[in-house]
Computed example of a mutant assay.
Amino acid sequence: MAKDTAAFAEMARRMETGKGFIAALDQSGGSTPKALRLYGIEEDQYDGEEEMFALIHEMRARIVTAPDFTAEKVLGAILFERTMRGEIEGKPVADLLWNDRGIVPFLKVDKGLAETENGAQIMKPMPGLETLLGEAREFGVFGTKERSVILEANADGIQAVVDQQFEVAKMVTDAGLVPIIEPEVDIHSETKAEAEVLLRDAIYEKLGQLGDDETVMLKLTIPSEAGLYDKLADHPRVLRVVALSGGYSTDEACERLSKNSKMIASFSRALTEGLSRQQSDEEFNAALGANIDKIYRASV
Rank of each mutant, 00 (worst) to 15 (best):
A155L: 09
V168N: 08
Q165M: 08
E196I: 01
I203E: 00
L198Q: 02
I103Y: 15
I122W: 08
R137W: 00
A153H: 10
L198V: 02
L218K: 13
P183M: 09
G112H: 10
I103L: 13
I122Q: 12
E182Y: 12
P236N: 05
M123I: 03
G134L: 05
S148W: 11
V141C: 13
I158G: 13
P92H: 13
G211H: 09
L199Y: 10
A233Y: 14
L151H: 15
G227V: 04
V149C: 04
Q165G: 04
S148E: 03
D201V: 01
V162Y: 01
A233R: 12
Y204V: 00
G157F: 10
G112F: 10
E184T: 02
W98R: 14
K91I: 01
T173N: 03
M217H: 11
T191V: 10
D95F: 07
Q165P: 00
L207Y: 09
A193T: 03
M217K: 12
F142S: 10
M123F: 11
D213C: 05
A136D: 08
I180P: 05
L220F: 13
A202W: 02
M217E: 02
Q209P: 13
D201T: 04
S148T: 13
D212C: 07
M123P: 01
G176D: 09
L132M: 11
L210R: 01
F142Y: 15
A202L: 07
V168W: 10
T116W: 06
E182D: 13
L96S: 07
P183T: 03
V172C: 12
F142L: 06
L207T: 06
H188F: 08
L151S: 12
E184A: 03
A175S: 12
D213K: 15
F139R: 12
D110H: 07
D163N: 02
L177I: 00
T173W: 06
Q165L: 13
E214F: 05
P105T: 07
L129S: 08
F142V: 08
V93Y: 12
L151I: 04
A153L: 02
L151V: 04
L113Q: 11
K192N: 07
D234S: 15
I122Y: 06
S148L: 03
L210Y: 11
P223K: 09
T221G: 07
L218R: 11
I203V: 10
